[in-house]
């Protein structure tokens, strides 16, 4: 097999297959985990007596409340917004300060990545849906340079740069950073970087790129010629990323929906949750015991609960 068709055809298909199967496997495995009790972590007043004001979003007790809390978490990362940092001030005084940059960087990266992903649909669909064009128009609103500079391309590189710099320069973050943390960032920076270089600097034959993408999407792939090394680098980084995704911390894209500390209603007091696989224990109550030995207890002159 030629190297071009290996990188352009075999590896992308293998990566997609690994992603679809691996991701489904992870989710199904999680779905089989028992969740017998409600274990939400909350920062609001639990629903109790009617005259005590309960936190509907912070400590939801209805399904709608849980959906609203999950949506805010997934779309706006509220738990990251509450991030704090501890600092020793004036000798032994420990102060907790607000720390919003991680939240800002994470939000900027995730939303840019989503917009970029949706923008790429123009290569995989023919005709291109109108909403893709609308996203492109909004993203390139300022019409800087030619081809038009997309704001998300700048934002994603700045955000990823910050997220990497944070792991390197922040002593605490560096201490807990694992090689896999850097690998995920490196793949994302490589992916965004090769895309930006291809679009703004080395240039690429966009029509040929789309023909290749449509070939992949219609199962009649043709390895492209003359698309340049940057295109292959972009494609290979993407393949590596999506193949790596099910094995990495990046499955949080599915896992965030399955966090039992987030997606359960805080209704432990309102409703009784019986562990569904409780072993049916054979019990012998005091009533039954008393009935069994009634005469003997009475003969011994001991008090009976029920005469």
């Amino acid at each position: 097999m030629e190297l071009t068709s290996l990188i352009a055809v075999a590896i992308p298909y293998a990566a997609i297959a690994i992603f679809l199967i691996g991701f489904s496997y992870r989710i199904v495995r999680w779905s089989l985990s028992p969740v017998p009790f409600r274990i939400p972590t909350v920062c609001g007043q639990q629903k109790s007596l009617p005259w005590i004001k309960a936190g509907y979003l912070e400590s939801p007790w209805t399904r709608m409340g849980v959906v609203a809390r999950m949506a805010l978490e997934i779309l706006l990362f509220r738990s990251l917004f509450r991030n704090t940092r501890a600092e020793l001030r004036q000798g032994p005084k420990l102060s907790y300060l607000e720390s919003k940059f991680l939240w800002l960087g994470a939000l900027a990266f995730h939303w840019s990545f989503l917009v970029i992903l949706l923008r790429h649909l123009r290569f995989f669909l023919e005709p291109v849906p109108a909403f893709v064009g609308a996203i492109e128009a909004a993203d390139g609103f300022f019409q800087v340079s030619l081809p038009v500079l997309y704001l998300t391309d700048v934002v994603i590189l700045v955000a990823l740069g910050y997220l990497l710099a944070r792991r390197i320069w922040n002593a605490q973050a560096r201490y807990i950073s694992l090689p896999s943390d850097y690998l995920a960032l490196a793949l994302l920076i490589g992916l965004a970087g090769t895309g930006v270089i291809m679009r703004y600097f080395t240039r690429v034959d966009v029509i040929a790129a789309k023909q290749f993408a449509l070939g992949l999407a219609t199962f009649s792939p043709v390895a492209p010629e003359n698309l340049g090394v940057m295109f292959y680098a972009h494609l290979f980084t993407l393949s590596a990323l999506i193949a790596y995704l099910p094995f990495s911390k990046l499955v949080h894209m599915g896992g965030v929906f399955l966090s039992p500390t987030r997606n359960l209603a805080n209704d432990n007091r309102a409703r009784r949750h019986v562990n569904p696989w409780n072993y049916p224990v054979k019990v012998h109550t005091y009533q039954e015991w008393e009935d069994e030995f009634r005469e003997k207890i009475a003969a011994a002159g001991l008090p009976l609960e029920r005469q």
Binding site: V28, L125, K210, Q211, L214, T218, S220, G254
Partner: peptide, 28 residues
């Protein structure tokens, strides 16, 4: 969970079955 996973898989593979359904080819 399985409904959500199914919806996600349908959305992710949308280009594949949409193009096959519409008979799109890679002819430029």
């Amino acid at each position: 969970i399985y409904s959500g996973l199914g919806l996600f898989l349908i959305l992710v593979t949308y280009p594949f079955w949409q193009n096959l359904r519409a008979g799109v080819t890679s002819k430029g």
